[in-house]
Design a protein around this nucleic acid. Structure first.
Lengths: 220, 220
DNA sequence: TAGATTGTTAATCGATTAACAATC
DNA sequence: TAGATTGTTAATCGATTAACAATC
């Protein structure tokens, strides 16, 4: 098989990959050997051209008239995302949101393995959340190195987000997934991804507000 | 006061507003009357020009040498986002993630009021989650109209996401905040915002995978 | 005044969409 | 073959960044 040029891939395309992957897996489960960009676009309420462009980045070559081989596509997306390997992670902050992430199905299904949670609340330390032990935050330093943990999921209160991030960095963490509603500042070599629930709320409430204002203007 | 032209505002800018708002509120709490785009940019690890451009959309006019009036800016951002009014919402699906959203501080602080949760698990129905009653999903139809609820937060299992969304739409919901890892298809007039935890995971794990591959190539 | 900052207009960058030849 | 689909190249669109005059 010829090796294809490495295609550049947009951040937005990466973010869409999980949608493609779960649809492809669904089709595999139903015994479908192939699926086309047209089909995917229809199911995801998007455009076929975007699907084709995105899938080009996986290196999978489609067949005119038939589309893409389901199995090949699933494997290629998983490889692209690194979801073909198990990813061990520490959860930092075992509050409501953190606890919810332990046991979040789409993570478990795709190789994200939260191996321990850390907190400074003595009531929580020593307990288990769905089988994951909650340890004292003081043991973080020791364990990151010893267990070769690359990824930390940061769900501490916003007030301590920056200082906790700095601790993680000095302990040698490679990537921080920041769920706190603030930006953390860390050295460039540390990978940071922020998932911002407040941003989503901003977007939906501003759209609702705009709609309400328009309605008021029409009736006024 | 002159009314300014309504500036167009990008989706990305809307999503950044909560970051600006919390920083501005922090400054107010510290007694600072003004703050500049330079200051904001430094704190948020971004560029001053982007901050100025974003803030222009609020209609607040800054003063050369001084920057923006903190109080005025906070009020303008809250108005822009509709966070100056209480937003009542139903939570659909009282699982782990849904439960975590009840009581999520940044929502509560900014006017998002989850007034009831709905589930079809008889073990959950009748219980309370941090003061919010869990009701049978069968009562949804009746209550959306009666309580004039505009916003539904969808945290049901992915398998029932589409059918639940359709129910919400036929009951007259105006906006759906979709936390399920799938796209839901609804009429255009219904506002849909999707917060996709799997997308964030895709992004961070692909970056980790790329880094690991580069490292392997160097050592190989 | 000198200098820091705002706000506008233009340039750049990145992502999406359109057009269309190639393929089976 | 006819027709659906792929994949590439070009055009468009939207967001970010740069340049710079205006302001206090």
């Amino acid at each position: 098989m010829e090796t294809k040029e490495i295609k550049s891939i947009s951040k937005a395309a990466i973010r869409r990959m999980p949608l493609y992957l779960s649809l492809v897996k669904q089709q595999i489960a139903m015994g479908e050997k192939t699926l086309s960009s047209t089909f995917i676009a229809e199911k995801l309420n998007t455009e076929a051209i975007q699907v084709r462009k995105d899938l080009a980045a996986t290196g999978v070559v489609g067949q005119p008239r038939l589309g893409f081989c389901s199995e090949e596509l699933a494997a290629a997306i998983e490889r692209l995302l690194g979801w073909d390997n198990l990813q061990e992670a520490f959860l930092i902050g075992a509050g409501n949101l953190g606890s919810a992430l332990i046991g979040y199905e789409p993570f478990i299904e795709n190789g994200l393995n939260i191996v321990a949670a850390f907190d400074n609340d003595s009531d929580k330390i020593g307990t288990e959340i769905r089988g994951v032990k909650v340890l004292s935050i003081d043991r973080l330093e020791n364990l990151i190195g010893r267990m070769h943990i690359k990824l930390a999921i940061l769900t501490v209160p916003v007030e301590v987000a920056q200082q906790t991030a700095e601790r993680l960095v000095s302990d040698g963490i490679e990537a921080i997934w920041n769920f706190t509603p603030t930006k953390i500042i860390v050295p460039d070599e540390v990978i940071v991804e922020r998932t911002d629930l407040a941003a989503g709320y901003a977007q939906i409430s501003s759209r609702l507000a705009t709609k309400a204002q328009r309605k008021a203007a029409e009736n006024g």
